[in-house]
């Protein structure tokens, strides 16, 4: 752990703190899963340890699927931290509203292709939000935060993954959430194929109806 200098806190998330640091002369990101005082110590350790080990594994799997994720340099399960490559760029969350309609569309299609590559490879991200997508300075799109990712190929899991994306769009970018989601699904179907994409879309609708207070369900059951 020597030769590590914290330069700046990038983000204090719910689950982890992301620090920009200098490590052996290289700019890196340190993701530390801090102790959660509100959680029972045993439960806390179990959750943090599992996610610290699991996350780099899934990021590696994602790379094999052709999805850009930061390079992992070190995993430390004693201090519950991961040292990884720093991506120079901006979160999609902050970019979306600044873009022209066409550029926004392109970006969303690209997001869709990334999700499809992941899903085709049997990976579910688990927290697909625009905060977890970073566009680097060379316009390459990176997917980060695999803390809740899982290896599943089930339709249900794919549906939930995209359902969360849709809901996230509705709650943070409501002005153009519909277009964005349609574009994402377009990109998705281009990579994963129309047959599967249609099934996933149907699943998403089913998941939405399953929600506790959904008007569509009432109409359907009539």
């Amino acid at each position: 752990m020597d030769k590590l200098v914290i330069l700046k806190q990038l983000k204090k998330g719910a689950e982890a703190t992301i620090n920009l640091s200098n490590w052996y002369g290289k700019k890196v990101v340190i993701k530390s899963r801090n102790l959660k005082k509100y959680r029972h110590p045993q439960l806390d350790e179990k959750i943090r340890k599992f996610r610290t080990i699991h996350e780099p594994q899934l990021m590696h799997e994602a790379k094999k699927a052709g999805v850009s994720t930061p390079i992992i340099f070190l995993v430390d399960t004693k201090n519950m931290l991961i040292i990884m490559e720093f991506i120079h760029g901006e979160q999609v969350k902050h970019i979306l509203k600044k873009l022209s309609k066409d550029k926004r569309q392109n970006l969303c299609v690209k997001i869709g292709t990334i999700v499809a590559k992941l899903h085709s490879h049997g990976i579910i991200h688990g927290d697909l939000t625009t905060s977890n997508l970073i566009l680097n300075d060379h316009h390459k799109l990176f997917l980060v935060d695999f803390g809740l990712a899982e290896k599943i190929s089930e339709l249900e899991a794919r549906g939930v993954d995209l359902h969360l994306m849709k809901r996230g769009l509705e709650s943070t970018h409501n002005q153009f959430s519909k277009d964005c989601f349609n574009d994402i699904m377009y990109g998705y179907s281009k990579v994963i194929g129309e047959t599967i994409a249609k099934k996933v879309l149907k699943k998403i609708q089913e998941i939405e109806r399953r929600g506790r207070y959904i008007e569509e369900r009432k109409i359907k059951s009539k």
Binding site: K11, K12, G13, A14, K36, Y38, R39, H40, T129, T172
Partner: peptide, 18 residues
């Protein structure tokens, strides 16, 4: 209690951070 509360707390914290 510990398990279910930790779950809703995690989600609340996530929404707060977001």
């Amino acid at each position: 209690q510990e398990t279910t509360f930790a779950m809703v707390c995690e989600v609340t914290e996530r929404a707060l951070a977001h």
